[in-house]
């Protein structure tokens, strides 16, 4: 008996794991660049390869953006409702965090842009 009942189970589970990892790693367009805008102008474009922290000054104060391998977020913002901070980490191409009161935005871009343009 080379293959026992449990072996089939292990092989199936392994196959499932491989499939799940494939979908996780290759499915969806994971972003590779963070585009930071202040008052509509691009102030910084950073690759999502190494950790760094960027501080942007807006009309209300300083917005701090954190970049880590594969993801980025707005770590701190002076806006009253903290909507962009609460969005958390952004990973996929096209995801955007807007800090409207402070006029700062963080957008993730992948190889294929998710859309042509956005109007607010």
């Amino acid at each position: 008996m080379i293959l026992r009942a449990g072996d089939m189970g292990v092989l199936l589970l392994g196959g499932g794991l491989v499939a799940a990892l494939t979908v996780y790693a290759w499915g969806g367009d994971r972003g590779d660049t963070a585009v930071i805008r202040a008052a509509g102008q691009v102030v910084k474009t950073a690759p999502l390869t190494h950790a760094q922290s960027v501080s942007i000054d807006g009309p209300l104060g300083t917005t701090r953006i954190e970049i880590e391998p594969g993801r980025a977020r707005v770590a701190a913002d002076p806006s009253p409702r903290q909507l962009c901070v609460k969005q958390g980490w952004l990973t996929l191409s096209g995801q955007t965090a807007l800090c409207l009161p402070n006029q700062v935005s963080l957008e993730i871009r992948g190889r294929v842009p998710a859309y042509d343009t956005l109007g607010y």
């Binding site: 072996d7 092989l11 392994g14 196959g15 794991l17 491989v18 990892l21 494939t22 996780y24 790693a25 290759w26 994971r30 590779d32 999502l48 390869t49 190494h50 391998p69 594969g70």
Partner: peptide, 24 residues
């Protein structure tokens, strides 16, 4: 960086599954 490894994950996992099964 973890982001670079992520893309290779399925390749490594598939290799582990195939070679593991054959060796077994």
């Amino acid at each position: 960086p973890a982001a670079a490894l992520l893309k290779l994950l399925p390749v490594f996992a598939a290799a582990a599954l195939i070679f593991g099964a054959v060796n077994g």
